[in-house]
Nucleic acid binder design. Structure first.
Length: 580
RNA sequence: CGGGAUGUGGCUCAGUCUGGUAGAGCACUGCGUUCGGGACGCAGGGGCCGGAGGUUCAAAUCCUCUCAUCCCGACCA
């Protein structure tokens, strides 16, 4: 491909609103252009990269036995009503009515459509299992799109759905997808980590997120340095460490704490450390008043409370609710004498005695509180967010907390949708059974962004070969000189016929411009054809990743190039690089 | 939806406070000189200053309303 005939508008400066490196570089390298908030044009270079990613995803999905199909973006409201999500999905679901006043939405995901399709067409156990997938545009009306392709409203996703006869089958399907995902991200050259995404029983979790490790990630991973345990911090099990050796304190007393309603203020005022204070957080859990107790230096995780109670939603109580439930303003709630439906204490609180808590009265706290003696705790459970210093819940090893970008998610759905939408089959005995489902997503456009987050330097993108839109930047520094042009064309043709994708910069530009653009676009291999090199009888080659330059002789170029290419690819350490 | 900010040629921005008839750099067109890490000169093209009202002799600039975008908090691939 000749760059003079290509459409790759590069920019010296990044748009002012681009914050993260992938957004800046994708824009500057002429790969994407923003159309409107969270919605992007994929220019030829960007689209090529995206298709490289999609091709690898396809190969691995097919290898794992999944079948590709394509479902519509426009979906009828009826299906969403059946699953119950028309009411529950929220505003991310972009709804509209058509000319006949029929309610529709743009698909943010396709559980409803696929379940509808399968329930109509699959009737027998003989037809199961099936795993169907598509690579398709999704729309989610995010409140705040940001970071370019990282969090768009319209994005490209691979979504797969498995249907099995029973739990065991669903688990097999799940494991097959899990393995396929590992292969995909490995082949793409990403540094990633599969992470538990469900707070369910340790080791038996049926939801994993695949995180690409990057400082700019929006998620934090709790990862054990000793064993394989890794989980999203939002879900990670926080282990209550230590033994109980505090003595039961003398009778509790009440201390005036005027205006001191935060943990820091109370700690400073009463001269105690934050880990000796109990925070009492009032939650509205499906309409029930619930008090959640955690140590003053910890963070409550409302999701854990929600899951513990098997509830639909656990939200912080409003100031009015707090006032009604505690007879005090916000900041003075405590478990002693508190009348709520449930008092859930973090497991860690069972290990100590002698707490400072709110007194359920304005401007007052209790001191020397024993939860077992003075309060009615319904139960002790893990309801806090794991933190720096916590130990691994599996092996007790030290934890670290790297940031990550969620690029994939595998989930065992069970019968949630098949039950709601009556997706059933007949078993060997002619008995009706619910299909057991799983769903598996990869954010294809997000993978592109993550790839660039992990692979860039001060000059631009450093594409791993499998993701690069072309393999070689071939710079003709003297397009007006016949010999250079002829040689460049000859090399271009030779490499292309050897199966490599070559972008020949034949533009009438000064050399500096070409060097800068080549570095910016980040194709893994650069070849320079110019008067100086030709005079020495060489084509200059540069490994974009290392910056290392090598002279390849014009005579015997093919062999020299092949050897060099192998070295460049080997440097990437990929199990199987793209191209010839 | 709250909190903060910004809208001026394709891009990055100045000009707004203190109204006086629109600028720079990059990009684009032509000519010339250049030509191995984002050249230079000359000459050009391109902007109803986000939109609508209002104040004023006069509005990018002041006022009101609106729309859009971006940044900080709760969702998700």
């Amino acid at each position: 491909m000749r760059l003079s005939r290509y459409f790759a508008p590069t920019l010296k400066e990044a748009p002012a609103d681009a914050e993260v490196i992938s957004h800046k570089l994708l824009t500057r390298a002429g790969m994407i252009r923003r159309l409107t908030s969270g919605v992007y044009n994929y220019l030829p270079l960007g689209w090529r990269s995206l298709n490289k990613i999609a091709a690898i995803v396809r190969q691995e999905m097919d290898r794992a036995g999944a079948l590709e199909l394509h479902m519509p973006t426009v979906q009828p409201a009826d299906l969403w009503r059946e699953s119950g999500r028309w009411e529950h999905y929220g505003k991310e679901l972009l709804r509209f009515v058509d000319r006949h006043d029929r309610e529709c939405c743009l698909g943010p995901t396709h559980e409803e459509v696929i379940t509808d399709l399968v329930r109509k067409e699959i009737k027998s156990y003989r037809q199961l299992p099936v795993n169907l997938y598509q690579i398709q545009t999704k729309f989610r009306d995010e409140i705040r799109p940001r970071f370019g392709l990282m969090r768009g409203r319209e994005f490209i996703m691979k979504d797969a759905y498995s249907f099995d006869r029973d739990d065991a089958g669903a688990e097999t399907s799940y494991r097959a997808m899990f393995e396929a995902y590992k292969r995909i991200f490995t082949r793409l050259g990403l540094r990633f980590k599969p992470v538990e995404a469900d707070s369910g029983s340790i080791g038996g979790s049926f939801s994993h997120e695949f995180m690409v490790l990057a400082q700019t990630g929006e998620d934090v991973i709790a990862s054990c340095t000793a064993c394989d345990y890794a989980a999203n911090v939002e879900r990670a099990v926080a282990r209550a460490a230590g033994t109980k050796d505090d003595a039961v304190p003398p009778a509790l007393t009440t201390a005036p704490t005027p205006g001191k309603h935060t943990v820091e203020e109370v700690a400073a005022f009463l001269n105690v450390s934050a880990d000796r204070i109990v925070k009492t957080i009032l939650l509205d859990v499906d309409g029930q008043a619930v008090a959640a107790l955690v140590r003053g230096d910890r963070e409550l995780n409302p999701i854990k409370v929600k899951n513990l109670m098997n509830a639909n939603a656990a939200v912080f109580a409003t100031a009015e609710q707090v006032a009604a439930w505690t007879n005090a303003k916000v900041g003075f709630a405590g478990p002693v004498g508190l009348k709520v439906a449930r008092v859930i204490a973090d497991a860690e609180l069972a290990l100590r005695e002698g707490w400072v808590t709110g007194a359920n009265a304005d401007d007052a706290h209790h001191v020397n509180v024993s939860l077992s003696r003075d309060a009615k705790v319904t139960e002790y459970a893990d309801i806090r967010t794991i933190a720096e210093g916590d130990l691994c819940p599996l092996c007790g090893g030290a934890m670290e907390f790297p940031r990550g970008i969620e690029v994939g998610h595998v989930f065992k759905l069970g019968t949630k949708y098949s039950a709601a939408m009556r997706s059933v089959y007949l078993d060997e005995n002619g008995k009706e059974q619910l299909m057991v489902m799983g769903c598996y997503g990869i954010g294809v456009s997000r993978v592109l962004a993550s790839c660039i987050e992990q692979n860039n330097d001060e000059h631009g993108i450093v594409f791993p070969p499998p993701v690069a839109p072309f393999h070689v930047s071939l710079l003709n520094l003297d397009p007006k000189a016949d010999d250079a042009s002829a040689k460049a064309q000859e090399i271009h043709d030779a490499l292309e016929s050897a199966g490599l994708e070559v972008l020949l910069d034949d533009r009438d530009e000064r050399p500096g411009v070409k060097f800068k653009d080549a570095d910016l676009m980040g194709l893994p291999m650069q070849l320079v054809v110019g008067g100086k090199g030709l005079a020495r009888g060489v084509i200059e080659a540069k490994d974009r990743r290392t910056g290392e330059k090598t002279d390849l002789p014009v005579d015997g170029f093919a062999a020299a190039f092949t050897a060099w290419k192998e070295a460049v690819y080997a440097g990437w350490g990929l199990e199987k690089a793209g191209g010839a």
